[in-house]
């Protein structure tokens, strides 16, 4: 309980720091936001400028401005999108699910496939597949993720058109909830595969190293001495231990994963936050960009909390140190 509270406190602190950073960016940007907005609007009257200044609170001292800014964000007011001319919050909430879906799908593919490749090559460290995994992981990590996406896009749009290469849904011909889900899944394939390629590589490498470690551990010998089959030893005893570094890495890399999602969404026109960020940059829509930064941080923080929870579930040594409540039994007091 105590750890949960301190964790929440640290989350709030981090999010506040993001807000403060956003504010700093506004302050230090060449020209104040109103000038930028006015510039984008192609000029405005004196009164309008003064009115906007007052609206943004730019006539007040810096600390007051910060307080006002924080207050606005706490109440969910992220301002108006300059381009879309609607509240940034609703804009972001429309786009958030697509990004989360993409991230979850890629993460699942990467963890499952990466771990299996890793286990396999750890069991046959001198085998062909092991070398292949090593090579593949280096390649996956060295190719720019958007470029991988572009290559897949070329392949699947002209050479072998079995997957849609753009958007999240088809415009026509979709019926019912089930049809909708299938349609989204169909569109999800290429973006998710692209984004996961980097991480399959990484996790296969990581889980290979950690499985090699684990398979040499004393408790694995114990498991073998019990007469368990090789499969039971691997999946019943080694896997949970071997996957711990992968989970740790997963938590650390949420920010990177989101960055990758930004690029992949741009490649495949996936209507998520990253695509929105790209559009906002083209249109110099700063309120939207700042809000995206904030919400990205929220996604990363939440994902980190979730991996922490998963970590505690996998490894009893960390997290809520569970002590079984003493039960009064005859045996207990022998």
């Amino acid at each position: 309980m105590k750890t949960l509270l301190s964790k929440l406190a640290s989350v709030v602190g981090l999010l506040f720091a993001v807000v403060a950073l956003n504010f700093l960016l506004i302050q230090f940007a060449p020209g104040d936001p109103v000038e930028v907005i006015v510039g984008e609007m192609g000029g405005a009257s004196e009164e309008l400028v003064a009115q906007m200044r007052a609206e943004y609170g730019l006539d007040k001292p810096v600390l007051v401005q910060l307080a006002i800014y924080v207050g606005k964000i706490v109440t969910g007011d992220f301002g108006l999108s300059i381009y879309y001319n609607q509240p940034v919050l609703s804009l972001i909430l429309q786009r958030l699910p697509a990004t989360v879906l993409l991230m979850l799908a890629s993460m699942t593919i990467a963890v499952v496939l990466g771990t299996f490749l890793g286990i396999f090559s750890a069991r046959h460290p001198k085998g062909l597949l092991s070398h292949f995994v090593t090579l593949f992981s280096l390649a996956g990590y060295s190719a720019p993720v958007f470029w991988t996406g572009l290559m897949l896009l070329i392949l699947f749009s002209s050479v072998w058109p079995i997957f849609p290469v753009s958007g999240m849904t088809s415009i026509r011909g979709v019926q019912g909830v089930f049809g909708y889900i299938l349609d989204v899944a169909h569109h999800l394939v290429l973006p998710a595969v692209t984004l996961s390629s980097v991480y399959i590589a990484l996790y296969s490498r990581l889980s290979r190293a950690s499985m090699l470690d684990v398979l040499g551990a004393d408790y694995i010998r114990t498991a073998r001495a019990k007469g368990l089959s090789e499969r039971q030893v691997i999946y019943g005893h080694a896997l949970r231990n071997g996957i711990i570094p992968v989970v740790t890495m997963l938590g650390l890399q949420m920010g990177q994963l989101l960055a990758g999602a930004t690029l992949v969404e741009t490649v495949f026109n996936w209507p998520g936050l990253g695509r929105l960020a790209y559009e906002s940059i083209l249109r110099r829509d700063y309120p939207t960009l700042l809000a995206i930064l904030f919400f990205s941080a929220v996604i990363v923080v939440v994902a980190n909390l979730l991996t922490d929870l998963a970590y505690g579930k996998i490894d009893p040594r960390i997290g809520g140190r569970r002590k079984p409540a003493p039960r009064k039994t005859k045996e207990a007091t022998q």
């Binding site: 602190g13 960016l25 990177q256 989101l258 990758g260 690029l263 960009l289 941080a297």
Partner: peptide
């Protein structure tokens, strides 16, 4: 380490995008 954690939580690419688009 808190500062480090803060920078790890921020998606680096998004922050860099913002910096570059704000400062040119």
């Amino acid at each position: 380490m808190k500062v480090t954690e803060f920078f790890q939580i921020l998606p680096a690419l998004l922050l860099a995008m913002l910096l570059v688009s704000v400062f040119g």
